[in-house]
Design a protein around this nucleic acid. Structure first.
Lengths: 380, 380
DNA sequence: TTGTAGGCGTTATCAC
DNA sequence: GTGATAACGCCTACAA
């Protein structure tokens, strides 16, 4: 790895002016503050923890003085010392697989944010599934006693030995993106597909095409086609269609190509099926479909409505604003933390699993279909 | 938030069969093991820490017995208790902004992996920049004494008060994705642009177009156009072109649209500039350019070569294999950890900043230009 | 309200 | 090599 910095221009930033040698003093303790303040350690502890009942103004003043003194001395509570005494680490573990799903990005946002509100730290750990069951190879997070609880995001195919070894930790655990009766949080894929389909039907669409996930979809490691969400999405679509007396569209059963000519495949599908709306419950398909439509002269959304299932707004970072059913990983993270915090109170409690609804991101790719369909009919 | 789980099908998974009520026993301590083994606490501690000098076979046997006993009893070291005594938390803080750059995803991978090799925990923390300087609103990570060091990923525009307040923690800090003389790690954008340009020149390309970042590029919050990397990428391109005596291509100075018709803009640019190769140093442009080219009958890579700068392989998750200069955030994470670990030994040490080279991801979008350019000339 | 005494579980020290 | 003892910094409990 070349350590050369050849980036001549660009200049340095504010860091330079501020990189004065920071003094690495010893950590300040309660005792030191107490000594300076001429009171006992406990008085300081109480003042800083806000445990002092400030009935008299003299007490209140003293508390303020102590707080200021602590501030000036740069006191910061030693969380490890506190943890030994209280038997609470103040840390929650976020365990995920090393072939991380992209969903982890927003899950981290949600979990980290929610934990902050509970004044808890987040210990993040990526590990290979096959390393989890064996005490030798297990990550430090599991080998040590260092967190009050775990949020586990390992997708849907968790080997029983892994489950067992996690349970032997005797820690409260919330499972994310997997489905069981208790202690799970996952996105409501059924509801999302149902709602998306209904929305399109409400607008007048009748030929609505669902593009399901594909086995081993690489973008979504943690939610492969075997994952419950694939089934749930299809079921939501089917139910909505049937309830309105519409026939589900049989899509051509193509093996999707992952090169520049994937667009041509989709063009063929569109031409054959002639949908007025497409639901891409498969990650990353929206762009292809849009471009396939455009390439045969269909405009979005006038001639073709598109709804995508995605973690973010689909079709390239910078790209067009596809109307999206957003996988609610952030909300899932919040919910997971809420549940875990509840379990921290009573470790033995079991909480009913929760499906978190998708949020609908507005976009520019959905509209009512045309009264008469004047679209060019391209031969398949 | 609806808590209904309407996902009828999909079934539950292995969790169900394993959700036996885990017993929440008290944490096992060294003392308990010592008592059962009939030895002192210290003997157990030494045995488990591998500090016993096993000169005699009887000792070795005893050590093994103790280890097995500890295992059976489900002993896990209490990291907090250890931390109070050793004055080492065994945790490293990963501090990032709450409007997280997507780059954080791979940075987490690198940092988490490298920390695991050093047997360190990673404490993850997202916070708003404006909250960092104020002790009141600062995240717990900064308010408490709880980590041995920090890796800070706040992009390039760090307010001096934030720098100051971080330095007052008197913790070793490594700065990621920002540039200063010491203690920084960042991707070598200059070198990457230089290499990409050279590669294309070597293949015979002469009309090479660089698409630079745009101000406020939304996909890349932590590396906006003001970021050193934008300047560095352009400089690398310019240097490589000039060294080969080639004129840099003036690109049309268009304001990029973020709707379905962005492709049309790029079509115009391609028609006007007639490049045989494009370097998209802007995130997310590769797909547009490719499609713009295809839409005027150019094939990729025969008629147009494309190199993208990206965190992952560009143009949709599932999509075409664009030849990519990959932002090496994982390697950056590794390097940051290495540097931080070095600083943990000697807290006062300053390490020279490091530019980490991009890796070149093979793809299908680069080839030599045609001898004669037979491409259709579309009017601009 | 304040201070004293003691303990949390581990590691460091130093006799044995 | 082993074990008693002290210490880490904080918090709980209880007495003053």
């Amino acid at each position: 790895m070349s350590m050369l910095d050849r980036s001549a221009p660009g200049g340095h930033n504010a860091l330079d002016n501020n990189l004065v040698s920071s003094t690495f003093y010893m950590a300040v303790t309660l005792d030191q503050i107490a000594q300076k303040a001429g009171v006992s350690r406990m008085t300081v502890a109480r003042a800083l923890n806000g445990t002092t009942k400030q009935t008299w103004s003299s007490t209140a003043r003293r508390v303020q003085e102590i707080q200021k003194l602590a501030d000036d001395m740069g006191y910061r509570r030693n969380s490890a010392a506190a943890a030994t005494r209280t038997r609470r680490f103040g840390h929650v573990g976020m365990l995920t697989r090393s072939d991380v799903s992209h969903l982890q990005f927003n899950l981290n946002k949600g979990v980290s944010h929610a934990l902050a509100r509970h004044d808890l730290h987040m210990t993040y750990c990526e590990a290979r599934i096959e390393d989890l069951a064996d005490p030798e190879s297990a990550p430090k997070l599991l080998r040590e006693h260092c967190v009050d609880g775990l949020i586990v995001h390992l997708s849907d195919e968790i080997p029983p030995p892994v489950i067992k070894s996690l349970q032997q930790l005797a820690l409260p655990v919330i499972w994310v993106n997997t489905k069981s009766e208790f202690d799970c949080v996952y996105p409501d894929d059924y509801g999302a597909a149902y709602r998306a389909t209904q929305e399109l039907i409400g607008l007048g669409h009748r030929r609505i095409l669902l593009i399901p996930m594909q086995r081993g979809e690489p973008a979504d490691i943690a939610r492969p086609a075997g994952h419950y969400s694939a089934v749930a999405r299809e079921a939501g679509y089917l139910d909505a269609m049937r309830e309105s007396g519409l026939a589900p569209l049989q899509r051509a059963d193509l093996t999707r190509r992952s090169d520049f000519h994937a667009v041509e495949d989709w063009r063929r599908v569109l031409a054959a099926e002639q949908p007025t709306a497409v639901i891409t419950a498969a990650t990353g398909e929206a762009g292809f479909v849009a471009l396939a439509g455009m390439s045969i002269g269909w405009r979005i959304p006038t001639d073709l409505s598109i709804v995508a299932f995605h973690d973010a707004r689909s079709f390239s970072d910078l790209g067009p604003k596809v109307s999206t059913m957003k996988v609610p990983m952030q909300a899932v993270g919040h919910k997971a933390v809420d549940m875990l915090v509840a379990k921290l109170d009573d470790v033995t409690r079991r909480l009913p699993s929760t499906a978190v609804p998708y949020s609908r991101m507005g976009g520019e790719s959905v509209a009512a279909p045309r009264e008469k369909d004047p679209r060019p009919r391209t031969p398949a």
